[in-house]
Amino acid sequence: MSEPVSALQDASHDGIVAVREDGLQGMITLRGDLSAAAVGSAIKDVAGLAVPEGGRISGDRTGGLCWMSPDELLLLCPHEDADANVERLQQGVKDTHSLVVNVSDARALFRVSGPAAREVMAKLCPVDFSPDAFTPGMFRRTRMAQVPAALWMSDDGTFHIICFRSVAEYVFGLLKVASQPGSEVGAF
């Protein structure tokens, strides 16, 4: 057994925002009937949280639930806890049609922070990131330039972005270009 490593090993870049690869993150996909009692209680048992409403996230990186689709949640937890949590979730939902799988290593997580964070994101995603339209607690799956991404804000100046591990370098490159000095937009 060796130390697991994230895609870019915590690479960082400072431009008009701070861009960080946020290291290893536990992520578990759960597919099932989100309104089923067994699913709700298994989730509650493992994550300590209720199933979030559509388009929202509850909790945070250390323990969170992201609404991915009407029959899919993404559970966030410490990377080292993911396998154990998969087991517990599987046990909890074993009598109902469902799929629980560890996807921690299939993904990379980035953090974009600073007063210009909304602007930098708005250069890459076809999403309204104005303060009235996008607020902490919302969870959005979209595209970031040419690849799929999922994102949320933990506070007004901080975005967290999930992408596939294989394109981590591409996403990091996008964020570097979008945060180049002198590229402030001043639109929000």
Binding site: A145, A168, L174, A178
Partner: peptide
Amino acid sequence: GEARDEVFQPIRRTP
């Protein structure tokens, strides 16, 4: 737009 040089298109990399 940004799509040139390193980020002209996504290049997928294995671990």
